[in-house]
Design a protein around this nucleic acid. Structure first.
Lengths: 194, 194
DNA sequence: CGATGCCGTAAGCAAGTGCTTACGGCCGAA
DNA sequence: TTCGGCCGTAAGCACTTGCTTACGGCATCG
């Protein structure tokens, strides 16, 4: 945990590189430790940068969080057509360490209220509408309910996998089959119309 | 936020009552705010008690957390036979405010590691084994995988419902039908054996 | 009554937090 | 070369955190 993982030792006088180093360090730490437990000193250290620069470039800790996580999430959201978002998300979730992180960062952004509330609402709406568009029904509310359940499912799996000692069987091989089956069942409007 | 909700003004010199007041205040705040954002001062204030007593009775903040949340969870786990745990949990989740709280407290107990790790692992194992026993199959790993997916589903719904502005359709009426259908699909061993 | 043992209180400490400020030095422009 | 504007740094401030300690008071028991 002490040695950095993805940081180039930016010793040059390049503000853009410094910003980038801070953002990647922030993404890693926010995802791994959550917002509260991540200190600005830790982010700056991981980026190999003085902490004062963090405030110069991002204003405050919340500004850094917002920019770091929003960028990471938008990358995944816009990586392809909405019809493939579910597949992309599932695939990302089971990658060794990689792309499940922004989800955790968002969820751990704040306990209940406060930090990143707008961001959470915005991302939730984006995912929900994308999933809801996959439901072939006229009942809008029902489509949204199914989409939100599906998103909750994905979030729950990500959360459980992040808890040490729990979710040992939630591997790609063991779980993704059941996951895809349950997902299509949730999205299939021919079953259990309300 | 400032005025307490469920606290009797314990002015008497009754250590048991003081302990209870601290525990209920802790349950409410840990569930609402998470472990990090909940301060011992806030718990003591909500309980109408001096904060020094908190340390006298529970040793430290983590001891208070452990005792408060463990008791609340064990209550739900042992409220009936394991076969009905799923139904009990779903019912508790959609109660106005009540029993979804301990789940949130456990999840928000710590970002990744540290506080309440043993508790999370213990509760996860209890739920997983209870759900796995409902799967009618000889393939133990498959049963565990299905149980963990189901638990993840429930956790995800609870988490989403706790985020303001997201999960607006995750009400009992709109969602529980789909939820029960997806749950039985996950537990039905006749579909999608690995 | 006097004494002993809890219960409750006030005050504060050491450490860590986000954030600010004043300063030194490298760079390109004039 | 000189100068002005960024980039990077060290130091510290105001505040909150979990936790401790020394003390005052009610109550029970002899």
């Amino acid at each position: 945990m002490s040695s950095a993982g993805t940081d180039e030792p930016v010793r040059t006088r390049d503000s853009a590189a410094t910003r980038r180093a801070l953002l990647t360090a922030a993404q890693e730490l926010f995802a791994a430790e959550g917002y509260d437990r991540t200190t600005v000193r830790a982010v700056a250290d991981r980026a190999g940068v003085n902490q004062a620069l963090l405030f110069r470039y991002f204003g405050n800790k919340e500004g850094l969080f917002s920019e770091a996580v929003r960028g990471e999430m938008m990358e995944l959201l816009n990586a392809g057509p909405p019809e493939e978002l579910l597949e992309r998300t599932i695939a990302a979730m089971f990658e060794p360490v990689k792309s499940a992180e922004p989800f955790l960062a968002v969820l751990r952004g704040a306990g209940s209220s406060g930090v990143g509330a707008d961001l959470r609402a915005e991302l939730g709406a984006a995912y929900t509408s994308a999933f809801a568009s996959l439901v072939d029904t006229d009942d809008h509310d029902d489509a949204v309910a199914r989409a939100e359940l599906l998103l909750a499912f994905l979030l729950g799996i990500t959360v459980m996998r992040s808890i040490p000692g729990v979710g040992t069987m939630l591997t790609a091989e063991a779980a993704s089959g059941h996951l895809r089956r349950a997902s299509t069942a949730l999205l299939d409007s021919s079953s259990g119309r309300s």
